[in-house]
Every structure is written in C-alpha cells, then in structure tokens.
Amino acid sequence: MKNVMSNKIVIALYVLPALFLVLFLIYIPIVLTGYYGLMDWDGVGQMKFIGLENYKKLIHDKLFWKSTWHSVLLALFSVLSLVGYLIVSLVLASKIKGANIFRKIYIIPMLMSSVAIAQLWVKIFDPMNGLINSVLTMLGMKNTPLWLADPNMALYAIFVPIVWQYAGFYIIIIYAALINVPQELIEAARIDGANAFQIAYKIKVPLISGVLKVLIILAVVGSLKYFDLIYVMTGGGPGDATEVIASYMYKEAFGKFNFGYGSAIGFGLLIISMGTTWIIQKLLNTNK
C-alpha cells in the first residue's frame, strides 16, 4: 500500500477523475462565462463578438448596482443573524434539558426544499388570508402591511424565510464546534470563579473562532449568490424591489435572451464574491 501511494504516477491517476470533474464543471464554465460576456448572443443563434461592450454597460447599469446592494444587504443580514445562531448554540451546548429536541427542531427547515419553503412563506405573507395578517387583523389592526407586495418591505420580508431556512445549518455547525471545546478548560475557568457568561465569551467563543470565520465567509458568499427563494416568491418583484444579482442575471439571460449580457453579470458576480471573500479574510486576520 505504501509503495503504491509513493508512486507519483499512481497518485496523479487517482486525482485525475476528480480533477476532470472540477475542471469541466467549474473552472472551464467560469472561463467560458467570461468569454460569453464578450459576445452579443441570444442563446440560440449566432454569437457576435462585441469586445468589452457588455462589461461597460454593466458598470453603468443602475439596476445591476441596485441588485448588488440588495445582495449586500442580505449578506449583512445573514452575518448579523450568525450572532443569534451563536447564542442559540451556546444555550443548546450547555446541556440544558431538551437540547436534543430543540436541535432537531432547528434542523427541520434545512430538510425542506427551497420551493416548499417558498410556497409556505408566500402563504404566510398573503396580505388577505395569510397567517401573519390574520393574526394582526384579529388583534384589531387595520391597514395590515402588504409584505411581499409592498416594494419598500418586500426585501426585508423575504430575508426572514432565507435566514430561517439556513438557521439549522449554522446552528448545527456551531454546536458541533462547541461540544468539542475541551471540558478541562471550562472546569478550570469555573474553579477560578468565572460565571457562565464569562466562560462563553472568554473561552468558548475564542476557541471556535476558526469555525466562526469560515461561517462568516460562507454566509456572505452564500448571500451574494442567493437565488432560490427570491425567484419563487417574488421573481425579483414587485418591479425591481427584491432583485438580487443572481435573479437579475437569470432574468437577462433566460428572460430576455441576452445570454451575452447575462454572462457578463455572472462574471461580475464572481468578481464581487471573490473580492468580498478576500476583504473579509484580510479583516478577520488583522483582528487576530
């Protein structure tokens, strides 16, 4: 076995299938997307080379920057909600009664498909018969909000199910990291007279900071390229009130047959995502 593994050719051979998959499914399409961005192409007919025209248009496209702003807001929202998840996980990991059941409850949304979640929340937000407005009406409120139909509110309304959807995912990861914190450290702190809050803040959180950093990046990048609930629930509407980069890209490419411009948006999204990741990494490292 050792002999086999030290043979460079064999190693290369074993890596090859995975390498091919990654190349053909990820890297080559990325390069192609950038290339299609140079074209005027309706997705069906002939491509026409137009140089950097699409990218120039992108920089001056108000709607693109508006949807970028929406994506950035979502990213901020997701990162803030990490604090909530951290608190929930700390409580769950401190061996309270029923922690096991709660953990399972938080996981459930993650097991549902995005479309099911979207349908569920569309019904909850329904301005006439929805759960929220029915309760509000029962409490005597007149002029109940329109939620998804109100351009000023739709974006924030839609953040709620998005955050809810991923809660289980983040909680389970933080929880797993927390129960791996060495018990001796916590005991030692307790002997030194630290209270539960101090133990959490001074010992547990610093020890899992690596995991938290990864989660922040995951949350930010996931939010920037977020698509599914928005597509199903509002389709980016009303108007462009909930348009995010990915839904805008989809609309241009598949709605308007502008595959060239759609590709340019996709490439822009890639650059924005990479840039943000890089900045976050820099920021988190200097904090250390």
């Binding site: 351009p151 509407g237 009303p238 108007g239 709605g255």
Partner: peptide
C-alpha cells in the same frame, strides 16, 4: 414584442400596478 421587450414590459407592468413608476 421580442422576448427582451416583453420581459421588460412585464416588469414595468408590475411596477405600474405597484405604483413604483
């Protein structure tokens, strides 16, 4: 209309009904 204009038209109609434009 062409798909391009048609898609825009749909968006604008939604915005018109939502009084965004």
């Amino acid at each position: 209309a062409s798909p391009n204009v048609s898609e825009l038209h749909h968006d604008l109609i939604t915005a018109l009904f939502g009084k965004q434009i």
